[in-house]
Design a protein around this nucleic acid. Structure first.
Length: 813
RNA sequence: GCGGAUGUGGUGAAAUUGGUAUACACGCCAGACUUAGGAUCUGGUGCUUCACGGCGUGGAGGUUCGAGUCCUCUCAUCCGCACCA
């Protein structure tokens, strides 16, 4: 019988399902492993990126299961989001129907890959039962001041007709549809992730060596902590008057307090309240107002592209140390969202300020020695033109000047972050409703917990214009949970990243409890953190930052115990490429997993995926290499006829021939390597190569016992990667005994009668010798000299280096 | 500009502590079996040279008996952030 993947794979998939083979055990005394691959969005069909992601995770899960760990390896569906609404607009299908039917199809696809997921812990984030608990968390967060509603300038995607979080804007465009993002002033709900900025940054240290350094660096940059001085520039009396006494001054933040004596002007963001006041009262020329308004209508990206532009505002402030009068400008490069939207400008020691000063002929004052005239000097040096601080190193002056400000009560040392609070409201239908009510007398009121979930109405019209919930005739009508008066339900829904921020805890919670709680603390204490998380690098900031934040927030509001980080180790898999480009429908360079499985079977798909490249690297698709993987499995299957005993045989190693010994050595080399691969490096490609080498070596001999041992071990090693064929062979040949537990490495098989050594002269390889395993160093050297006699003629050997089992190096002069 | 990575045959890639560079696979070449084959099997395959040999891990130095691996400099490519004061 030749290898028939379809038959074998179907048989085992049915069997595993019937046996509930992949359900975690309830016994919490067992050692656990929580292996998690990022859950898919139910787009309709699996793509090769999924196949790769889940093949990696499944190999790990199956490995640990075989080592008798209690393994949680769940799957679910990240099911809310825009594409479901887009499908509704395009094909008239209801998002719910579309989503759940996609899930049904994709579940079958996952099963056809033989992935060892728990079936009882599967859920979709659009399940009302999931929404219910999420809404409870959101209400609790509101009560604990972690969630608030505010009207502010937001990123608006006109294509998606919704607000986007900062993390969802990529180079000024929408992360999902690539449409250019606009700014819009509107109310929204925010999670106070900034409260956790420092903890999120600090705890990155716990992940060093366990998460890719790139991801750690990206998160660290995104949080963007910087330390410096915060102080107030007081307005001059005349300016104060001009502004009608509404302002005393404005706050600025600087990381360079050492350059404070070099301030020659200050600059405000166009959004700054003082600028708005000047515009409102028409205290600026009409054309200047017009130009500032134009800047206000530009996004940050547009402003960056536009080049520097600014206008003098006709007001002045007083330098806190020198009491000089300093002009105030408005400038398009000052960000409203950072450091209070105002800066002190030191053109001599800051590139941006310098460029601006040159453009508008503003004065320069050098205060740190070391630069050249006519350039901004941003390096270190000694202070000049700085009163009492002259002669001090600028690194010391930073803290000295902060100290002076604090003593004189003029300002204080402070920390600033680039991280913005997470805007979580979306003006879309297919999401979890934000469980709040607007009451005319009580204001914003959270829904009563016993009324949860606030479910979506099914009878909606989805046109792509506006928010379907807002347009629904009755859904938003309700009574105020506080006073009972007529009220309006919030029609915004939650960002889908909220759902993926806590799903790792939901899986860990036993399904028996899913009706009674969102997260079970004890279950979480046992299963978390996730021992290995696997997914794409595209979530380096978005999902991974939100999930880390959520973990800390849920801990602080009492839904989980002392967990610091949700994901202990992270593997970011590389992309699947075809002809050097990412596979995508629009480029037409995709490989359909279903077709691949149909032609070669799941085992070949999995084998190729793990063999062609290490998981962290990009994977270039290659049809003939897939054939190669298939060929190997056919060969492996055919060798079952070589097996003569149904258990791991005991072999008298010394009685074997050279080829037999070599075959055993190769088999055990693979076994030895496997622990490192499965637990540390995840270089499955090298383990597979070792198994191929072992099979090649077995083919060079014909000892039934050596073959039996070899097949026993190879099928054991490959089972996590190609589970069906290995289960089949193991059952048939070894009654599956080789798949239960560990196999010990036998050191004796690595002992060889003779050893081949390379002989080098002055580091250049010149010959090869074969010596007895027991040969002494002198004997080896003597034999080595003989083998390279030609190269030693007329020379003196000044040094002899013998590297055991490897080589001999003779140094001559 | 800042941060993170990566550079090895025709291709995907290997290479404990520094110790025979290119394992394994694809491709290619030759042969066997076959009516035939894009099936299967066997052998070969870094570059260069008739050959002895020489060269070879992006480049240049350095340390060492010995460097893909360590150090210094440099080039190229990819990814992320980007006027964050």
């Amino acid at each position: 019988m030749s290898y028939n993947p379809k038959e074998i794979e179907n048989k085992w998939q049915v069997k595993w399902s019937e046996q509930q083979a992949f359900e975690p055990k309830d016994d919490k005394s067992l050692e656990k492993k929580y292996i998690l691959s990022m859950f898919p969005f139910p787009s309709g069909r699996l793509h090769m990126g999924h196949v790769r992601n889940y093949s990696i995770g499944d190999a790990m899960a199956r490995y640990y299961r075989k080592q008798n760990y209690n393994v949680l390896h769940p799957i679910g569906w990240d099911a809310f989001g825009m594409p479901a609404e887009n499908a509704a607009i395009k094909n008239g299908r209801h998002p719910k129907e579309w989503t759940y039917s996609n899930i049904d199809y994709m579940r079958k696809e996952l099963k056809s890959l033989g992935l060892s997921f728990s079936e009882t812990r599967e859920f979709a984030t659009c399940d009302e039962l999931y929404t219910k608990w999420e809404q409870e968390f959101i209400i609790k967060m509101f009560e604990e001041n972690l969630l608030y509603r505010e009207s502010t300038t937001v990123n608006w995607c006109n294509e998606c007709q919704t607000v986007l979080a900062n993390e969802q804007v990529e180079e000024g465009c929408c992360w999902r549809c690539d449409n250019e993002v606009e700014l819009k002033e509107m109310p929204g709900y925010y999670l106070d992730i900034r409260k956790y900025a420092d903890e999120l940054l600090e705890d990155l240290k716990l992940l060093e060596g366990k998460w890719p350094s790139q991801v750690l660096a990206m998160q660290s940059n995104w949080i963007g902590k910087s330390q410096g001085l915060e102080f107030t520039f007081k307005l001059s009396d005349a300016s104060k008057e001009k502004l009608g006494g509404k302002f005393e001054g404005f706050e600025v933040f600087t990381t360079r307090p050492d350059t404070i004596y070099g301030v020659t002007y200050t600059a405000l963001a166009p959004e700054h309240p003082i600028v708005k006041e000047l515009i409102k009262n028409e205290l600026l020329d009409a054309d200047v107002i017009e130009k500032i308004t134009a800047i206000l209508n530009m996004t940050e990206v547009e402003r960056a592209k536009a080049g520097k532009e600014g206008f003098e505002l006709g007001i002045t402030v007083i330098h806190p140390l020198t009491n000089e009068e300093i002009p105030v400008w408005v400038a398009n490069f000052v960000l409203a969202s950072y450091g209070g939207g105002a800066v002190m400008s030191v053109p001599t020691h800051d590139e941006r300020d310098f460029e601006f000063a040159m453009q508008y002929n503003l004065p320069l004052k050098y205060v740190i020695d070391g630069g050249e005239e006519g350039k901004a000097y941003t390096g270190d040096g000694v202070l000049i033109n700085s009163d009492e601080f002259n002669g001090m190193k600028n690194s010391e002056a930073k803290s000295a000047i902060i100290k002076l400000f604090e003593e004189k009560n003029l300002g204080r040392g402070t920390t600033n972050y680039k991280l913005r609070n997470w805007g979580v409201s979306r003006q879309r239908y297919w999401g979890a409703p934000i469980p709040f009510v607007h009451c005319k007398s009580c204001g914003l009121v959270p829904e009563k917990v016993e009324n949860l979930p606030i479910a979506l109405p099914e009878d909606v019209e989805i046109t792509g214009e506006g928010n379907p919930l807002e347009k629904h005739p009755t859904w938003s009508n309700c009574s105020c949970p506080k006073c009972g008066a007529e009220a309006k339900r919030e029609t915004d829904t939650l960002d889908t990243f909220v759902q993926s921020s806590w799903y790792q805890f939901r899986y860990a919670t036993h399904p028996d409890k899913w009706n009674s709680c969102g997260i079970d603390k004890e279950d979480v204490n046992y299963w978390l953190s996730v021992d290995q998380y696997i997914g794409g690098i595209e979530h380096a900031i978005l999902h991974l930052l939100y999930a880390r934040f959520f973990t800390k927030a849920l801990r602080d509001i009492g839904f989980i115990d002392n967990l610091k980080e949700p994901f202990e180790r992270l593997l970011t898999q590389g992309m699947v490429l075809m002809d050097g480009a990412k596979m995508s429908k629009s480029k037409g360079n995709t490989v359909d997993p279903d077709a691949l499985i149909e032609k070669y079977g799941a085992d070949t798909a999995r084998l190729f995926t793990l063999f062609a490249a290490p998981p962290q690297k990009e994977l270039e698709w290659n049809d003939s290499a897939v054939e190669g993987a298939f060929r190997f499995l056919k060969k492996l299957y055919a060798r079952k006829s070589k097996v003569t005993t149904n258990e791991l045989p005991t072999i008298e190693h010394s009685s074997l021939s050279k080829e037999e010994k070599l075959a055993r050595a190769k088999v055990y080399e693979a076994l030895q390597k496997s622990v490192d691969v499965y637990e540390k490096t995840f270089a499955f490609n090298t383990l597979i190569a070792s198994c191929m080498e072992a099979l090649n070596a077995l083919d060079k001999q014909d000892n039934g016992l050596v073959w039996s041992e070899g097949m026993y071990i190879i099928t054991h090693l490959l089972e996590p990667i190609t589970p069906h064929i290995c289960a089949e062979l193991s059952e048939e040949l070894f009654a599956s005994k080789n798949l239960a537990g560990k196999i010990e490495v036998l050191d004796e098989v690595f002992v060889q009668d003779s050893i081949t050594l390379a002989v080098a002269v002055n580091g250049k390889r010149r010959a090869e010798i074969e010596v007895e395993a027991t040969a002494s160093k002198d004997e080896i050297v003597a034999q080595a000299k003989e083998s390279v006699a030609k190269w030693l003629e007329g020379k003196n050997v000044v040094k002899e280096i013998v590297v055991p089992n490897k080589m001999v190096n003779l140094v001559v002069k």
